[in-house]
Write a protein that binds this DNA or RNA. Structure first.
Lengths: 338, 338
DNA sequence: CCTGGCACTCAACGCGGGTGAGTGCCAGCC
DNA sequence: GGCTGGCACTCACCCGCGTTGAGTGCCAGG
């Protein structure tokens, strides 16, 4: 086990390195932090920390930089979450309050998060499977052509075209619409399948085909749209990364364009509470020198989606975590209100 | 006026510079292109071209690179549009054919365009004002709360909540729904205002307030949503820009995040036909070393929105223009079909 | 008007010594 | 045993310098 002071040294190294982006040496450390010991002692501690794999030297006779393992220890044991100041909170709330619809909420959230953390922000649209149905609408566009519109409690709208196997009368349509809504409105999407299971039985034989088609389209929509959408922003912040651009920034931009990758990234995070994935802890190759801070958010007590930021492993973890948590909280509030 | 050969020299310079990214000298030019004259002659031509402002030297005793004015001449007079090959066309069509809804069409288009041109692609969602109404739906969510759903011929769906001044019966609702649709379905959004103008008069006094509210919300939606959405992709291609990254790439990424800027960019382009804006021709500061190739696309003969690519002024104009034109054409087809 | 020849310019490259931050180790002290 | 000051060593970084070579402008001759 590492002594108290050694942990303190690690904390100091992380702090300085995050600030300066340069390897930090023993002398500079003792000058900037009053550790109460001499550089020589710090050197010994550093040797021990290096031995354990928490820090490393880019090359012999240079200062030390934290390793992924070092950051991990820092995040888990040494750093708290830095709360937002009151004016910051107020600014967040004001900014988000102006949103007019779901797209706008997500858009504002992304911009806000990117600006607060000065990193790349990722916000997932509220998930359908965890949402509840507000309303299902069926429109007749042509004798044998329907449109299914699905409205969620988070304000999201999905629509699908349906080609009916047989013409479907207005009365049947109204009937189906009413029955559908009385069964599923207010229920969670995940519960819909079993709620509508026996619905065709209530209809005349000639209509059953169409009803079944409608239901299967509905269920299909639920499944399909589980592959969720997301919005990213603040990519310009990547340019503050380092100086060896092409190699650092390229793979990150590529990864960010792959929604699949991002969704997996957010998906891997724990459902509740904040998750920090550091460097190589991210499965994706291109993100091996970035960290992802993510958290769930939702209109109720339960998370309906996640949001987070992607930045260099060398980031201000306490500050970033504070911003992410605060934004998630307020977005949840906004969604609950609307 | 410049002689035929001098134009040929300019074309050669543009061609080589686009390929190599390095200033091109007289000797190299004569070696790679059989111009039939000696380097010395080419030097004289170059001096003339420089005099006129079509090319410039980064520093004394270096080769020449085209200026914005040079590219302009090249695009206007010297370069054609390079058509896509048949297999390429087929690939485009196959890729776009798999789309399931509007979001998917736009998403696929962006990815396709980014991949084909190896640059940043921008696709605007079909505009509401130029679209036609497919269907208007009114749902009653609560006694005095309605939802308005607007479906366009391009598959776009917009919804709005409406708080009614007075309770609105189901019969009135059905009546309003029917009247609304019979008037506006199939008509262009721009024509909607005058089509619904006298609608309240057909209703009982007690319902007129609600009808008016619905109509004003409808008209509002048309106006609001004129500020159109767009999707961008292929930002990773920016890393192929140059080697002096931070300065080149940063402002571009920033500009791309500002939807306003992009919309203005596309908006400035002519409505029909392809538009190429080179370097400083773009009003926006950060885009002064990029060119924008854009074109309108639409389901009919008329453009409903625009798409294009943003790349370095040093780009393959004929190829890019060919790809942009081809993609626009096929997207138009897809939209017309759905 | 084109061409070969010639002197000139200057960014890019490679080399080499100097500088300084940082390290590891060790003997001595508390 | 742990902390400290001292010391020799390492090595990336910087700076200046000469070399190289692609490229230029100009000019006299075809």
């Amino acid at each position: 086990m590492l002594s108290e002071r050694r942990l303190e040294v690690l904390r100091a190294i992380v702090h300085d390195y995050v600030g300066t982006e340069e390897p930090v040496g023993s002398k500079a450390l003792t000058e900037r932090h009053s550790l109460g010991v001499s550089p020589a002692t710090v050197r010994n501690d550093m040797a021990a920390l290096e031995e354990e794999g928490f820090i490393a030297q880019p090359h012999t006779s240079a200062g030390r930089i934290p390793t992924d393992k070092g950051y991990r220890l820092f995040v888990d044991k040494l750093a708290g979450v830095k709360p937002m100041t009151t004016p910051e909170r107020r600014a967040i709330q004001n900014f988000l309050d102006g949103a007019v619809d779901l797209d706008d909420v997500v858009g504002r959230t992304v911009r806000l998060l990117a600006q607060l953390t000065r990193q790349v922000a990722v916000v997932q649209y509220p998930s359908l499977t965890r949402s509840t149905v507000r309303h299902v609408e069926l429109l007749s566009l042509a004798p044998a052509r329907l449109m299914l519109v699905l409205i969620t409690d988070t304000g999201r709208v999905e629509q699908r075209m349906i080609d009916c196997p047989a013409p479907f009368g207005e009365t049947s349509l109204a009937d189906l619409r009413a029955r559908l809504n009385s069964r599923v409105a207010g229920h969670r999407f995940a519960d819909v399948p079993q709620l509508v299971q026996d619905l065709p039985e209530a209809f005349e034989t000639e209509d059953r085909g169409t009803v079944a088609t409608v239901l299967s389209t509905l269920l299909e929509t639920l499944v399909e749209e589980t592959e969720e959408r997301l919005m990213i922003g603040g990519t310009a912040n990547l340019t503050r990364f380092g100086h060896d651009f092409p190699l650092t920034i390229r793979p990150v931009l590529e990864a960010l364009e792959e929604q699949v990758v991002l969704l997996k990234l957010l998906g891997e995070a724990t459902d509740s509470g904040m998750t920090v994935r550091i460097g190589h802890e991210n499965a994706h190759e291109g993100l091996s020198s970035t960290s992802v801070v993510s958290v769930g958010y939702g209109s109720g007590s339960e998370a309906v989606a996640k949001l987070g930021v992607v930045g260099p492993t060398r980031m201000d973890y306490p500050g970033t975590m504070g911003a992410v948590r605060a934004v998630a909280r307020y977005v949840g509030q906004i969604l609950a209100e609307s």
